[in-house]
Design a protein around this nucleic acid. Structure first.
Lengths: 368, 368
DNA sequence: CTGAAAGCGCTTACAG
DNA sequence: CTGAAAGCGCTTACAG
């Protein structure tokens, strides 16, 4: 099948007007240096020098010869053109495997990227590195891919440093502290954190639990959780809201019960829970039921930073991989086409709130 | 960087013993047809015919000429050898996007495949096709990949038919009805279905609910759910166990409540639930609690066919993507190396039961 | 089954 | 800045 990267359609349809007249009959369809020379009105030696570049030929003559060569489909010139335009039509996705990585979250990004890239005729190469940046350098040096996307970007991420030394564009899905050598696209997680708190505040909630997944994600600086949480905490302080932040030790029903119990032990007045995760939402509801608390009548519940697999059990501030990935691909394509050279550009997309009826106005205390 | 697929190390280190004696001095390092002819002790025309293949040359002579050509590093022959051995070191993963596809389940397979493939120096190319088999043909014809893995294989899957016409090996992760043109690796889902029922039976359960995800998965014939369910139903019948099978209309808490209510409406004696899914397990526990039923004291619970993201809330019969993908990669590599030619081979891996204390002996009725 | 030799495409010092 | 012509690598009917 004809690949779009080699746009020599013009040559394909042209007919050969000058044919080489070898003495063993009429040769059809293969243009030689003789044909090019005749069409350009020069000697074969001049054509030879143009093709090899071993002697400087006057601009005008050279152009005429190239013109004739391309029109006749003279192989050496056509091949040279193809070589220079050669692209793999493959884009890499750098997906680190960290100890705490929830791979199920990656899937939505893979599919969103793949779907968007396909519109432009690009395939996706999966690049996993437990270790580091060696893989990025390898695929760039070996010209296996035309560009690289970064997933699960840390605040301090060595991949954004490495990008500077690569000869292909890198688009970071997520914001590192150093954005100078990459294009960055991300959701506005800080805005999301503020929005979550404000939403609860406007519904009358003044005691909120922040349910966070395992602590390691924060320690290693997985960028979006840190941004969301920091902004949420700060906004809560500004509004005078009491926040109880808890890191769940795990995802079993016991882990969830323990975490919920601890939070209510510290602040019995909690009336809303913001969970920075999706899978534990069902268990949180079960855990609250066990304490005799219903959602949303007694406790309002919201899931933020929800990745690919939405539980659909609560109001959500989802990651929206589709929007982010579409923009990432658009930026990548523009960079590959040479339409933009503003490396260091950062784009933050606004979050969308998905209501499912689990965030309601705080019930006023009936007694006491 | 030097890629392992081109093993011409031998040629690199050889020195040129015969050099072309052109009259403009001594040419070093470039072997011509003349040199090969001299070394092989034949005329240049014979060498020419061997290289072009336009005339049949006696086996012995031909071998001698090839030998000489390789020793001298004669470009046309060396290049031909390279071409024939050329491999991309990339393997495709065909991941269909069906309406009911839970992409989060794919992730574990992607990572397991990528990790296993990397051990052999292979990268993974993501291939999504809403439509069909065009993508497989494209990457095979364009020689973008060396082999293809199939994910989410249906009982009647056109991709297993297409495989017959491709010039690269195809390893199916999941069993289609037609396995003749591919290598197949899968968990033994039928065995898993029987095991699930037997486990419950041996614990005294005689009324079991089978909680199935959306009906469309079954209608379209997603292979593992059908195999699991059919085998489970049959084993239940053999053992005289009453099974209430329910298809959940969705994954919200309301969907789960509705499904559970329907099942208990049909058979109030249900004492164990086997859920063919992971994400709804938390909601099922919550739903049972709402009915005043506790897990496992009142109702035993097991999750089977659990994909990448285990909820860890119940006993599980997981998919074990790692084991399946490792075998798939091993088979692929062996096929690529020409070490096996038994296309049509099917390998079923036994399931492993993960106990978490939610399957216990049936409580004897206290009254009535 | 193979070689001697004519011929072609292309390169390149030489000439202007 | 370019051409005529010698020469090289390779191919291929022709001959045996």
């Amino acid at each position: 099948m004809w690949r779009a990267c080699c746009n020599l359609d013009k040559l394909e349809t042209l007919t050969l007007t000058h044919l080489s007249a070898s003495n063993d009959g009429i040769e059809v369809g293969v243009a030689g240096i003789k044909d090019v020379a005749a069409r350009a009105g020069v000697s074969i030696s001049t054509v030879s020098y143009v093709v090899s570049g071993k002697r400087k030929i006057k601009d005008e003559t050279r152009e005429r010869i190239y013109q004739a060569a391309l029109e006749l489909g003279y192989a050496p010139v056509v091949n040279a053109v193809n070589e220079s335009k050669h692209c793999t039509h493959v884009l890499a996705v750098s997906s680190p495997l960290r100890p705490y990585t929830d791979v199920s979250n990656y899937a939505a990004f893979f599919f969103a990227l793949a779907t968007a890239a396909k519109k432009y005729g690009y395939d996706l190469l999966l690049l996993m590195h437990e270790a580091g940046d060696h893989e990025m350098q390898r695929v760039a040096e070996d010209r296996i891919v035309d560009g690289i996307f970064l997933l699960d970007v840390l605040l301090s991420d060595s991949r954004t440093e490495i990008a500077a030394s690569l000869n292909i564009p890198v688009v970071s899905i997520g914001c590192a502290n150093n954005t100078s050598a990459v294009y960055s696209v991300d959701l506005d997680f800080a805005g999301m954190g503020r929005e979550a708190i404000e939403k609860a505040y406007l519904l009358g909630h003044r005691h909120i639990m922040l349910y966070c997944p395992g602590r390691h994600a924060f320690i290693e600086g997985s960028n979006f959780l840190v941004r969301f949480t920091d902004a949420a905490m700060q906004r809560a302080e500004e509004l005078g809201v009491t926040v109880t932040r808890k890191f769940a030790p795990g995802k079993t029903i016991d882990d969830v019960n323990l975490t919920i119990d601890e939070a209510f032990g510290e602040d019995p007045q909690i009336s809303a829970i913001i969970c920075e995760e999706s899978v534990s939402v069902g268990a949180i509801i079960a855990s609250l039921n066990r304490r005799g608390l219903r959602v949303p009548e007694d406790i309002s519940l919201m899931a933020a930073c929800v990745g690919g697999s939405s539980s659909r059990l609560a109001d959500e501030l989802p990651m929206n991989p589709n929007a982010v990935c579409e923009r990432a691909v658009e930026i990548m394509i523009a960079a590959l086409r040479g339409e933009r050279h503003d490396v260091g550009y950062v784009e933050l997309l606004p979050a969308e709130y998905h209501a499912r009826g689990t965030m309601i106005a705080r019930k006023l205390p009936t007694r006491n």
